[in-house]
């Protein structure tokens, strides 16, 4: 663990931004002011941040329906995202996409995605482009334990191997796809990484509730792929703290499950304990960041509420032709 003080503070801040962004959405969605389907990333922050802290704007990521964390970790603007989710015309996608379709291609964020399993093939193409560009950049696809059952994911894994694409399959196993358990839906009832291995990829595994596990694992994975060895896969075991979508009554959970994972598998608590026990940072450093982040999220909501709304004419913009 050779991270500088600045790098540690930055990583914590990034995770905290995602956490507070989502906790705030969870509250604001109850008021009915925010439209559409929203899937919160709370609980999985260590994965997005532990991956993206290694990346530059040349590296690409492809995200999922649960994309806010990936977007924020890859550098999408907090205010632009909040405005998008609130449906403003100043949102990152002018209010046309919403929560499930946030993208910032200039930042290497090739889009959240409403279609489960659609991301992996896109990352193969982006990974081939990275290889063609020859600058050592990589393309990363995030997929859930549910998405790993999609034929598109299988095809993408094989094609990445065959084309030696500079592509990394990051599987976030949070044990649930919608209301269905991992053990039912993934026939091997084992892990996802061994599937990727069967496609001919080198694979890694890590604890997706521990930033340091993710970060150190990704250092190895990225060294391997950036060196031109072709694709790789990594599975992180993690937790989702909220329901599948906002409004999900979660009756599929066990008694006390949510309290237990919030207590024992919270990446922010784990991070704080690790760095304070190792005397790398003290509580005051982190408390100051907490306050700063809360204010930043508050400000993003203020802006989102005040931002101009789209108008009927906007419907006909951004298409190559309209009838």
């Amino acid at each position: 663990m050779q991270l500088s003080r600045e790098a540690l503070l930055r990583a914590y801040r990034q995770m905290k931004v995602i956490r507070e962004f989502e906790e705030r959405l969870h509250v604001d969605i109850q008021t009915g002011e925010i439209a559409g389907f929203t899937h919160l990333y709370c609980g999985q922050e260590a994965v997005a941040v532990g991956v993206c802290e290694h990346l530059t704007e040349d590296d690409k990521i492809v995200s999922t329906h649960r994309g806010h964390g990936h977007c924020l970790a890859k550098g999408c603007d907090v205010n632009g995202m909040m405005k998008e989710i609130w449906g403003s015309r100043e949102g990152l996608c002018k209010g046309k996409g919403g929560s499930m379709h946030i993208a910032d291609v200039d930042k290497g964020m090739l889009g959240a995605n409403g279609i489960v399993g659609a991301g992996a093939p896109i990352a193969v193409g982006a990974g081939i482009a990275c290889k063609l560009d020859g600058k050592g950049a990589v393309a990363i696809t995030f997929s859930g334990d549910g998405a790993c059952n999609q034929g598109t994911t299988f095809e993408a894994m094989n094609m990445a191997v065959v084309t030696k694409a500079s592509c990394i399959f990051v599987f976030e196993n949070n044990h649930y796809s919608e209301h269905t358990g991992f053990e039912y839906a993934v026939g091997t009832q084992k892990d996802i990484a061994s599937r990727a291995e069967a496609f001919g990829m080198k694979v890694w595994r890590g604890d997706g509730t521990d930033f340091f596990s993710v970060y150190e694992t990704m250092r190895e994975v990225l060294d391997y792929v950036r060196a031109g060895n072709g694709p790789a896969a990594v599975e992180f075991d993690t937790e989702r703290f909220f329901g599948h979508f906002e409004g999900d009554p979660q009756r599929y959970r066990g008694p006390g499950e949510l309290d237990r994972i919030r207590e024992l598998r919270d990446c922010l608590k784990n991070f704080r304990r690790n760095v304070t026990e190792a005397k790398l940072l003290d509580h005051a450093d982190l408390d100051a960041l907490d306050a700063e982040v809360l204010e930043a999220i508050e400000e993003s909501v203020r802006q989102a509420k005040a931002a101009p709304r789209p108008t009927a004419q906007d419907v006909l913009e951004d298409v190559y032709i309209s009838y």
Partner: peptide, 20 residues
């Protein structure tokens, strides 16, 4: 179909929650 039972392979068990 997906989640036509709901809750398969979860602590809540089959039909803990129906399809959406």
């Amino acid at each position: 179909g997906e989640d036509v039972v709901g809750g398969m392979g979860t602590p809540g068990g089959p039909e803990a929650i129906g399809g959406i």
